[in-house]
Design a binder for these strands. Sequence first.
DNA 1: ATTTTTATGAAATATTTATTTCATTTTATG
DNA 2: CATAAAATGAAATAAATATTTCATAAAAAT
Lengths: 284, 284
Amino acid sequence: MLESDVYKRMIHAREKMSKSHKKIANYLIEHHETAPFLTASKLAKNVKVGEATVIRFAFFLNYRGYPDLQRHLQEALQRKMTSAEVLARTTDEDNFTENVVREVLGDDIQNMKQTLNQVDTAVFEQVVNEMIKAKRIYIIAYRSATSIGTFLEFYLDLILQNTEMIHQADGVSEHLLDITKDDLVIGLGFSRYTRRTVEVLKYVKQSDAKTVVITDHLLSPLVPYGDYKLVATTEINSFIDSFAAPMSIASALITALTRAEHVKVEKRLKELEGLWETFDVFYD
Amino acid sequence: MLESDVYKRMIHAREKMSKSHKKIANYLIEHHETAPFLTASKLAKNVKVGEATVIRFAFFLNYRGYPDLQRHLQEALQRKMTSAEVLARTTDEDNFTENVVREVLGDDIQNMKQTLNQVDTAVFEQVVNEMIKAKRIYIIAYRSATSIGTFLEFYLDLILQNTEMIHQADGVSEHLLDITKDDLVIGLGFSRYTRRTVEVLKYVKQSDAKTVVITDHLLSPLVPYGDYKLVATTEINSFIDSFAAPMSIASALITALTRAEHVKVEKRLKELEGLWETFDVFYD
DNA sequence: ATTTTTATGAAATATTTATTTCATTTTATG
DNA sequence: CATAAAATGAAATAAATATTTCATAAAAAT
């Protein structure tokens, strides 16, 4: 039986290998992150064997040639990457679309994984810092994106008391006049980007306020107007976008903010707790 | 100044790109896990541009040739990969803000998987049927749950023109008086359940309207008042709940509805498309 | 509408990379 | 320590891949 995983195949055949072959196998295993991208001659040079020996090694493992071996090494690396995710992943077997809920939830899990993989944690951290520093925070979100905007506005205003969303209006909101360089503007826009969102952000960028855009793609029209860009994938097989991933990013922003400022936030929440109790806001 | 990160370089040069170049950039960004391993000719074939254009794209971004661009794409992928590996090792011990995004996204992926596993597809289908049958749809959502309510209201009203959300108000909304047995009421409530949500649902149940509750737990106080119950897990390690999973359920509801009623919906969307064009709602 | 500029892809060419050949060295075996 | 068998690397050849050329098409400017 022929092993499908390259590394297992190597380990399995380890005893039958010549000295040079063992050296090659060793190198491939030790440099599993870089070796899959080397050409045959460079690999030969690094391992200090002849080029031909590298080629023979590929044949020895029953591959059709060096490019074939290389392809398998690269694929194994990618598999490792996804399995390195903290989360036990959904077995792709149960991903056949038995019905719409499962299909959409499945797609959204993919979206979140992709978002997790491509998120730039340094940028995220900077955004949290800007939120802490900001005198006022303005949120720009129109049409469907309002949902995410509402969520952010609710919690940011709860915690910081300095946040408001600029609502869809016929004319341009008067609030835009008030924005100064000490403020932070968060723009939310996803595929079928609403023109007004782009225009407002463009206008805002003229004042010296810092801007954050949360969008679905690095080539989105909002990107040019964001000092910081957070990308959350929203693609599902539907005429709408799904905002699961942006929602998660929003939750992460609020969570990070409260952790960074936990002393202030705890004080504030204690006060609120009293208020909520007085007005019997929650069910228990 | 020349950007070192390939993707940043692409974003920076985005405006100066020709149509074909944008197509290539798009493809590279969307397939960032596979594209770095393609040869120039295969990439050209996938993007449906000439081979030469791909080469030109590499020069355009100031690389020495296609292999150089390819090397940078691969390196960028590896950087992300190793940072994913680092994440795999860091457990909940260190709560530095840098890892909060990954932590929350990871938790939310878990939430979505759990939601996927426990969702009752039969109930989901029934809910979609009730939405189709309903004369009017009312959405009850207060405080943070408003975000999900907004999303549902936006699209349901877009498609069916018979949906509204009952907003948080000091007194009880007058809309409640209008609810009849032909209507559908969707209640949204998650942990720290707002008392008013429960009360309003309780009241609604006295009329003979059908009710759906979307909540985070089968023991939630909303459950007794729902003819249909959809459970979406929202737990993250934070003082807030994350609504990624409920958002995905909402997207699924709208998607299922549009698929079931695609003739009507397509007609409606066609009309809207004209309106949107007239008022130049979308960018591009 | 017409000209000029720019971008494009097919094909030709150049370069790089993989494979084979073959003389030589190493290793295993009696 | 011979001798056969196996393995090796340098060089030659083959194959694949990248780059350039050039005629044509698309966009932009006039």
